[in-house]
Write a protein that binds this DNA or RNA. Sequence first.
DNA 1: AGTGCGGCCTGTCCGC
DNA 2: TGCGGACAGGCCGCAC
Length: 280
Amino acid sequence: MPELPEVETTRLGIHPHLYQQIIKAITIRETRLRWPIDADIARLFKNKKITQISRRGKYLIISSDELNMMIHLGMSGSLRIVPSDKALSSLPEKHDHFDIVLNNGVILRYRDPRRFGALLYFYGDPQQHKLLASLGPEPLSDDFQLESFYKNSRGKKITIKQYIMDAHQVVGVGNIYANEALFLSGIRPGRAVGRVSYKSFSKLHQIIKAVLKNAIAKGGTTLKDFIAPSAQTNQNQAGYFQQELFVYDRAGKACKICDTPIKAKKISQRSSFYCPQCQQ
DNA sequence: AGTGCGGCCTGTCCGC
DNA sequence: TGCGGACAGGCCGCAC
């Protein structure tokens, strides 16, 4: 499941192959993603030069001046580069729903078995787009400020875990990183956010940044996967701090810090894990 | 306005 | 062995 670090790693991985290239064609094989892919997208982008490859939250934005396409990987989506010398021999597989073919023969290929992802297009400033306009700050930018992160939580009845996963507060914290960040901060996921102290918020604020930063740094070492078709199967795992998971999916197993069995609990339909000893 | 949750999907795992 | 069912996940958009 791609979280922000995976999406950023993807952006960095595809950028050198796409930047300033001309789109020759967009081939759509399956339109049924989260929203149906509008067939106009192929016509609109034909012969357009890619001038920017950016990211907002978990949305990737590929732009040609005022025209943008937005790609979301959902939970099982991935993008990879098919180099020009492999373009003919590398046939799309079952869940490869669309290709963006560049003039130099390179193909950007989108795969998404569960089809929770999206491909949309729009004109103008991405920040004005409905899906992006109300997003909270980027966790690794200066816009992510402890003061407002704390203040917005006062009076809210939801849990701290729901709060940090709410993209209106801060983008990019998915279920795995939410669990891990709360563990590292010593806060139980089920606590009412309105009652979590400033001091705890201060720690959490730092930890969220550190965890995401670390994951992106790790992802950087796996960039080669974007041009290694054989690595495709495991691409979603590449870049995770998987060997460092303290609580996620470790129900019943010993806490790596204190040996207490990790507990599992559903919080608003999402699996949550915590150490009853380390987290209060 | 704040909160809760249904729904979209398929690969994987479990139990029969 | 094969098969059905539960589950996982992001996140919009509706209902309260």
